[in-house]
Simulated scan of single mutants.
Amino acid sequence: MASLVYLCARPQEGAAAAEYESFRTAMRRGEDELERWDLVREPLPVDAAARWHGAVVGGSPFNVTDPESTKTDAQRRLEASLAHLAEEAAAGSIAALFTCYGIGVATRTLGGEVTRAYPEDTGPTSVTLTPEGRHDALFGGLAETFTALTAHKEGTARMPEDAVLLAQNEGCPVQAYRVGDHLWATQFHPEPTGRAFTERMAVYRDDGYFAAGDYDVISARVLAASLSEPPRILRAFADTFA
């Protein structure tokens, strides 16, 4: 059994399969070393903390701030699973790295606040480490300022009480944080190459993340971006907890 797991939060099976490959490639792990679990269709196993050493959470077209009345049963079940994972990771029972949509669930679960006030356009953005980030186990080896890819409609307005801010930028003040020594969360996507991100953009072209007619222009910016640093976070996570 693999010691690490990718937790899928995407209903679109093609996008989910591609995201798994992006995580696996960035982490430099074989298929036998990174399991795949579909939280859209199956809840988190009750023995997750005993089954795996670490979990990475992918993105999703869902939003934590969606009105409860509009959430599907699948979204509610998924968020309940991720909330349980956040609690387990905060307690140190399992390591977890939440990305994009996942940071919203972790923030809300652990007492922080998620808002629609900090959306970011689809494409590359500049992210800067805080002093704490420069000494973090996963972020500490990164360049102080680096380029990452974003595409989100909500962000963290207030971190959980025990969280340590690791990275930030002007458009979205909370780009990454840590709780304890087993939970990390990023607003940006650490896993995709530029090519993989443009393919994901094509799937969500009409979902309001960007003007559909701007696809070619945004794709060119993505493909031209240097994305050397974000995958190093995932490799550090895998090396630490595999």
Rank of each mutant, 00 (worst) to 15 (best):
M1Y: 05
A9N: 00
A9H: 00
G14R: 03
A16Q: 01
A16G: 08
A17S: 09
A18G: 05
E19V: 00
E19M: 00
E21M: 09
R24T: 04
R28P: 00
R28T: 06
R28K: 12
G30N: 08
G30E: 09
E31H: 10
L39E: 00
V40C: 01
E42V: 11
P43Y: 14
P45L: 07
V46C: 01
W52S: 06
W52Q: 06
G54T: 13
A55R: 01
A55Q: 01
V57K: 01
G59K: 01
S60F: 03
P61W: 14
N63H: 04
N63R: 05
T65W: 04
P67A: 15
E68W: 13
T70N: 11
R76L: 09
R77I: 01
L78P: 03
L78M: 13
A80D: 10
L82Y: 10
L85Y: 05
E87D: 07
E88T: 15
E88R: 15
A90G: 08
A91P: 06
A91C: 06
G92E: 07
S93H: 02
S93Y: 00
A95G: 09
A96K: 02
L97A: 09
G102L: 03
I103H: 03
G104Y: 08
G104T: 13
V105T: 08
V105I: 15
V105W: 11
R108P: 00
G111R: 07
E113P: 04
A117D: 15
P119R: 04
P119N: 05
E120D: 09
E120V: 14
T122D: 00
T122S: 07
P124M: 14
T125D: 06
V127W: 04
T128M: 08
P131Y: 15
P131R: 15
H135T: 14
D136I: 11
A137N: 08
L138G: 09
F139Y: 13
G140I: 11
G140C: 09
G140V: 13
A143G: 09
E144R: 12
L149I: 04
T150P: 09
K153G: 02
T156H: 08
R158T: 10
V164Y: 05
V164G: 09
V164A: 13
A167H: 12
C172T: 15
C172P: 04
P173A: 02
A176V: 10
Y177T: 03
V179L: 15
D181V: 02
H182V: 12
H182W: 13
L183I: 14
L183S: 11
A185P: 02
F188W: 07
H189Q: 10
H189R: 07
P190F: 11
E191R: 02
T193W: 02
G194T: 06
G194F: 12
R195N: 05
F197R: 06
T198P: 05
R200A: 01
M201I: 02
M201D: 04
R205D: 08
D207E: 08
F210L: 08
F210T: 08
F210A: 06
A212V: 05
G213Q: 14
D216T: 13
D216Y: 11
D216S: 14
D216H: 09
D216F: 12
D216M: 09
I218K: 03
S219N: 07
R221G: 05
L223A: 06
S226P: 05
E229M: 04
P230R: 04
P231S: 13
P231C: 12
R235E: 15
A236I: 12
A236D: 12
A236E: 15
D239N: 14
